[in-house]
């Protein structure tokens, strides 16, 4: 427990035990995933499942700090697992090399307590959202581009889902990303995950946080569940009453 001494005053032994018992899926071993995986491992989340189909490319190194030059060509989820397992040897880490697609998404998320969306495109995010809503597993959304980003926490059955919040899939192009933007947004996602698991504070539920690094500005916008949402109004399982 000594390694967690500086955080025990925040959530107590009970909260630390909740973190130790938690299983969190991190979907995407890239820029956001680097930050989220690092902070959740350091905080003592007991089981991390790291999911990515891709391999490390030199162009990843400006922001995906868990991948190092010697990892180029390696599977991203393996590269992550090596670093995260070394960072905290008290936790269990699983690497899953897979594309998140319709017929696999539910199997990949399994019976996790929480999912963190650290993906890089909305097509896959919508697949993950469908599976999360269907299995009633909370999902923490994050995305970045340039100096901008956004975060929202989705509690299926109790809040707006990704489909309630986002109308369309933005055009995919080779846009720039400042590494530090991943740091800002990934840190907020990790904070949301820790708050949810330990029962501290108030998550960004039915609210979306928008960050503009160019001018150093945050906005928080209220969002509402769409009663006729094609996803959460039909797929949602029984609402969870308690946190892990």
């Amino acid at each position: 427990m000594d390694r967690y001494r500086r955080q025990l005053d925040l959530w107590g032994v009970e909260g630390q035990e909740a973190l130790r018992r938690a299983c969190v899926v991190i979907a995407g071993c890239g820029g956001l995933g680097s930050v989220v995986a690092t902070y959740l491992a350091c905080a003592g989340v007991g089981f991390l499942r790291l999911v990515d189909f891709d391999r490390v490319d030199p162009s990843n190194l400006n922001r995906q700090f868990l991948h190092w030059p010697e990892d180029i060509g390696k599977q991203k989820c393996i590269s992550f697992k090596e670093k995260i397992a070394a960072l905290n040897q008290e936790i269990a880490v699983e690497a899953v090399s897979s594309v998140i697609q319709d017929d696999l998404a539910e199997e990949i998320i399994g019976d996790a307590d929480l999912i963190v969306d650290a993906l890089d495109n909305f097509s896959t995010r919508f697949i993950l959202n469908n599976a999360a809503v269907k299995k009633n597993i909370p999902l923490i959304h994050g995305a970045v581009q340039g100096f901008s980003g956004q975060v929202a926490t989705i509690l299926p059955g109790r809040s707006a889902c990704l489909r309630c919040m986002f109308p369309d899939t933005p055009l995919v192009k080779d846009f720039p990303i400042a590494g530090a933007t991943c740091g800002v947004i990934g840190s907020i996602q990790a904070t949301e995950a820790i708050k949810y698991i330990t029962g501290q504070g108030e998550c960004l539920v039915n609210r979306i946080l928008l960050w503009r690094g160019e001018i150093g500005s945050f906005d928080v916008v209220p969002v509402r569940r769409n009663p006729s949402c094609a996803i959460c109004s039909t797929l949602c399982g029984d609402a969870k009453e308690s946190k892990p």
């Binding site: 995407g28 890239g30 820029g31 956001l32 995933g33 969306d117 650290a118 993906l119 890089d120 495109n121 909305f122 994050g142 995305a143 970045v144 581009q145 340039g146 901008s148 980003g149 956004q150 986002f166 899939t169 933005p170 995919v172 846009f175 990303i177 991943c182 928008l210 906005d219 916008v221």
Partner: peptide, 8 residues
Amino acid sequence: LFSYVAGG
């Protein structure tokens, strides 16, 4: 009104 981003 707001725009949103997609990368990760």
